[in-house]
Every structure is written in C-alpha cells, then in structure tokens.
Amino acid sequence: MGQARETMDRITEAILAGDRDALRREYADDAVGEAPDADRLDGGDAIVEYLISFRQAFPDLSWEARATFENADSALDEGLLVGTHTGTLSSPEGDLPPTGRSLRLRECDVITVRDGRAVSHRFYYDRMDLADQLGLTASGTAVPAPRAGTDQEPETVIP
C-alpha cells in the first residue's frame, strides 16, 4: 500500500469519525478541492469544513467501498455514502434543515498526495440523486436498495 492509499484511508476514517483535527492533518495548507455543490475549495481548512458539514448533516454516515485505485501519487475511492439526514446540511446555496430521509449516494473521491498530505481532493456525485433521495425534488424517490452482488469484497486495483 502506498502513501496515497494510506492518506485516502485516513481521510475516510476521519470523516466517518467526525474528527476535524485528524482530517485537517491530512491536507496541505494549499490543498484544492472540487465538488459538485461547491466551486473551488481553496485550502485545507475549506476542504475540512466542507467534509465536516456533510458529516454533521448525516451523523450516522458510513462508507461502502466498491472499488479502489492507487498509483504513484493518487488514490481513488468509489462507493456509497450511507446515512440519515438528521442534521443541518450547509451548502453554498444555504442551509437545508434535516429531512429525516435515508441516503445511499454513489460517490467517487480522487486525491493527489505530495509529501504525505493531500494537495488535491475531487468529489464526484449526482446532485439530483442527492436531492431526490432527500425528498427535495418532485419525484422524491425512496433510497435505492443495494444491488444484487453487493456483498462482494471491494475491487482493489494497483498498477
């Protein structure tokens, strides 16, 4: 396991634990983040605040890994964020009060690491799927059930 994978794993653990200090240690001061619901996140502090606000909105947040990838300086995690929206979700568009709805959101993270700290963190997920699952769209569909075969171990790819 390389430095990028270890950093990604520590970031995931810190997010799930809601540990702001541990999370902050994983990002360089000049780190840059990108997310579907936020423009550029400049600096480690901005990335940490983004992640902690999501964790506060979903206090029971868990992660179901589907695939991981690593190369010399980058790591990728693909999977599902699972939780219940019982806290306020802060976003650039404003605060969303708790809906009490369950979430099972497909998501992908990509980090690039330099000197043992993340310098780039890109988040990918479908904003409409998030809004739909929280009941914020006309369709307001229920949380999708796991697909057949999800009891398989996550795929790990290391070139």
Rank of each mutant, 00 (worst) to 15 (best):
D9T: 08
A148E: 15
G116V: 03
D30P: 00
R104N: 06
S53R: 12
V157Q: 05
E155L: 15
D29C: 00
L105I: 09
A4D: 02
V157Y: 11
G149H: 11
D21C: 03
D42W: 05
S62N: 11
D115L: 08
A131P: 02
V143Y: 01
R101D: 07
R5C: 03
H85F: 10
T7P: 00
G149Y: 12
T141K: 14
E70A: 13
L41Q: 11
R104Q: 09
T88L: 04
E93R: 15
Y124R: 06
R147T: 15
V157W: 12
H121T: 04
Q56R: 14
L23A: 03
L41A: 10
T86Y: 07
R66V: 15
A38G: 02
G100K: 06
Y124G: 03
D73G: 10
L61N: 04
T141P: 03
H121A: 14
A138M: 10
D109I: 09
D126H: 12
D39C: 12
A57N: 00
D9S: 13
I11V: 15
S90E: 09
T150G: 05
Y124S: 12
R10Y: 02
R24W: 09
G116L: 03
Y50P: 01
R114I: 03
A46M: 08
P144H: 10
Y50E: 06
D77N: 13
E49F: 01
P144C: 08
V113N: 00
L134K: 07
V119L: 08
P92M: 12
G140V: 06
L89W: 11
P154A: 10
G149R: 11
G44Y: 00
L89A: 07
L51S: 13
R40D: 04
G94C: 10
A38D: 07
E64R: 06
E93K: 14
E64Q: 14
A67T: 11
G18F: 04
E34R: 09
R55W: 08
R55M: 06
D45R: 12
D45Y: 00
F58T: 02
Y50I: 04
L96F: 09
P98A: 15
G87P: 06
A65Y: 01
A35T: 07
D129C: 07
E6L: 08
S62T: 15
V157I: 15
I47W: 01
T68E: 14
Y124C: 14
L130I: 13
T7M: 00
R55I: 09
A145T: 12
Y50H: 15
V110D: 00
T12I: 15
G2A: 10
R55L: 05
S53V: 03
Y124K: 09
S74V: 05
S74N: 13
L23V: 06
G44F: 05
P159A: 12
E49L: 10
S62M: 10
R66N: 07
L89D: 01
L81I: 07
G116R: 06
P154G: 05
R66G: 12
F123A: 07
A17V: 09
A14K: 03
T88F: 04
F69M: 13
L105P: 01
A148T: 14
Q56G: 07
G140H: 06
T112S: 12
R55P: 02
R104F: 12
A22R: 14
R10S: 08
R117V: 12
L80H: 08
A17N: 07
P97G: 10
P92L: 15
H121G: 02
D77G: 08
P144V: 05
F54P: 00
G100M: 02
R5V: 04
G116W: 03
S120M: 08
G43H: 04
V119F: 07
A142P: 02
